[in-house]
Design a protein around this nucleic acid. Structure first.
Lengths: 210, 210
DNA sequence: GTCTATATGTTGATAGAC
DNA sequence: GTCTATCAACATATAGAC
């Protein structure tokens, strides 16, 4: 399973390899910015609100990043990079379609939880700017690959055929993506158990089995 | 099943009982406004953009509605009213928990498709204002009732017990709510077939059954 | 029911000192 | 790396004519 590099550092000072005093570096500004974007919504977050949350002035932000939109682009790159890395793992490329599909579902859940705030931001985009539209296109490309996998599993006979494959794909993404709306790391539910649960519900359903 | 009254009228002129010439009435302004809100996001939609989409001036909007936030409140009332009406039907109040849960899932899908743009707006709220927070609280109240139903079905032995009931509820809502992100009425997929598909996937899973 | 102003505040971003 | 001060653009909303 591809491992997304940790993005837990909040303030620059706590970064292992970093010298110098207080202040922020770009990554630590980004981490807080994404959190604030998710809390208020990207559009509703002004540079003023962001500055308050950072504890610095509006202008100081522009020392670290050229614009609000660049902040968004940086965040989306972290989300998309993580998702796309799912396809680098050999388990996503060989084996039965059923196995590859389950692997991709598990990996996607893993990326969602590891890069939770970044993927959350991605999943809430409306496509208002060119930056957003480009990110949405990369996301659609990811979705298309998963849809192909579903089609293969269907042809293989391991996925039910009484439902339109597009509907199957949509519901699968709905179930997985909705995780960002409620899952919080550090609780009783580990990301591994969550992946187990998602796979169980998606493939076997909520009913008790006879 | 509770039926949400139609909200398909776009321009006032096409309203059955309406007199007078062109122009808008409040409901027709609301219908277009909600569509634009969903396309750009509520915060990103200025009264200027809205006016363009309506084909009237900014100020003219204020003849129909006191503020942008009132427009939002009106829209949310349509969404929440529809969802809450699910509990008015006798089928949601008696019978096995399994039957009541399936009925509520079907009814919710029905409301989602009938009042699609309104529910879409509700599901994307971030809770920035008092209006939004009040709506989110009503939505949480709806969610809580469904969670209780899941707990009953679990006690009844019809829902699997190897997954935390809160996770079950979250995944169920995720699957259902994600419908607003892709379903469009008027296509090949009717809302009845969609409800069948959602019930089938949620309760029996994507796998072929032996 | 719609319009042309316009009042009043907030936005993202820049200039230049420390 | 941060600040204060400032800008033009754009926001929501109002006043009053047609």
């Amino acid at each position: 399973m591809p491992s997304a590099s940790a993005t837990s550092t909040v303030r620059a000072g706590s970064s292992p390899g970093r010298r110098g005093r207080p202040g922020y570096d770009q990554q630590s500004v980004l981490n807080i910015a994404v959190e604030v974007f998710n809390r208020h919504g990207y559009d509703a977050t002004s540079m003023g609100i962001l500055a308050e949350n950072l504890g610095i002035s509006k202008s100081a932000i522009y020392h670290h990043v050229p614009s609000k939109e660049d902040l968004l682009a940086l965040a989306l790159e972290q989300a998309l990079g993580g998702l796309e890395s799912v396809w680098d793992a050999p388990e996503s490329q060989s084996g039965t379609a059923e196995h590859r599909l389950e692997f991709v579902v598990r990996s996607t859940v893993q990326v969602l939880t590891e890069r939770l705030p970044f993927v959350t931001l991605l999943l809430r985009l409306r496509g208002n700017t060119e930056t957003e539209r480009a990110a949405l296109e990369r996301r659609r490309s990811f979705d298309r690959k998963v849809a192909e996998l579903i089609a293969e599993a269907r042809a293989e006979g391991t996925v039910r055929t009484d439902i339109d494959p597009r509907t199957v794909a949509r519901l699968l993404f709905g179930t997985i993506n909705s995780i960002v709306e409620w899952y919080r790391p550090g609780g009783a539910l580990t990301s591994e158990k969550l992946a187990d649960d998602v796979v169980a519900v998606l493939f076997d359903g909520l009913h008790t089995r006879s």
